[in-house]
Simulated scan of single mutants.
Amino acid sequence: MNNKELARLLRSLADGQISVDDGVERLKQLPFEDLGIAQIDHHRTLRQGVPEVVLGERKSLEQLRIIVAAMAKQDQNILVTRLDNEKATALCNQFPEAEYDIDARTFCLIQQKTKITGQGKILVICAGTSDIPVAREAAITARMLGNDVEELIDVGVAGIHRLLARQELLNEAAVLIVIAGMEGALPSVVGGLVAVPVIAVPTSVGYGASFGGIAALLGMLNSCASGVTVVNIDNGFGAAFAANRINQKKN
């Protein structure tokens, strides 16, 4: 329940359109709902402007069924991240209107039309095709949170002319999420080309000495370009959430 829905409920109660008992019934699950295996934070939309997001990794299918069903009753949009294909297929059978992105491993159940509330465009850039899963997770998350998102793929520093040819697109963005593995140089390059926040995401893509993304992480943390902020390895979701907060209009 968001601010507008709560205001509508209170007006209905004040106007006598619903009874006190009905109002209590609708409000009693507002702070959180104890499901035994999870406590769903239904109050998060009021506090933060977006509903709780479910991490699908390490949850059983039965746990996911219970959690998604409880959230669906609130008539809100639902995003499940890090969900494998087998569990996603079962959930999509239960919720046929949902969509699963196999690259991003995201399950999206849209129950309300997503409104664009971001003040500008978020541009998601990835260095190589191997970085697409993290880039897609970031892009889908940012869209679910109400942002205009564009994606630019395979423009890493091994062929920097591919990036430089898109300078106009870089200049149009309000926030950039830049994703790279290997030595993690791309965010530094982008950070030197734009005047807006850059959120760098190291990926676990690379050969032996990349140490599962640690080399890229350290490279990004030591960026000489101003305005580059770094999230954890493969954390497209975290980057998108941070970009959303930067991009949202203030009330």
Rank of each mutant, 00 (worst) to 15 (best):
E25D: 14
I40P: 09
V20T: 10
A240T: 10
M144Y: 03
C224S: 07
N85S: 14
L79T: 14
R82C: 09
A180I: 02
A185K: 02
R44T: 10
N247L: 05
A239I: 13
V175Y: 01
M71H: 03
D103Y: 15
I18C: 08
Q29A: 13
L61M: 06
K4H: 07
G156W: 00
D22N: 12
A69C: 00
I18V: 11
G238Q: 13
P96L: 12
V175H: 05
I67C: 07
N222Q: 14
G181I: 07
V228K: 06
Q63L: 09
A70H: 02
S223M: 04
Q94I: 15
A209E: 15
A240C: 13
A200H: 02
N235V: 14
F237Q: 07
K28G: 00
R136S: 13
Y207C: 07
G208N: 09
T117N: 12
S210R: 02
G227I: 14
A215Q: 11
D22K: 14
E97W: 02
S188Q: 03
G118C: 12
K121R: 05
D131M: 10
G146F: 06
V189Q: 02
T45Y: 09
D84R: 04
L79Y: 08
H43K: 13
G181W: 09
I160V: 15
N235Y: 10
G212F: 12
G156H: 01
T229I: 15
D148W: 15
V190R: 04
I153N: 06
E86S: 04
G120D: 09
M220V: 08
N147G: 01
V175F: 08
I132P: 00
H161D: 11
G128A: 12
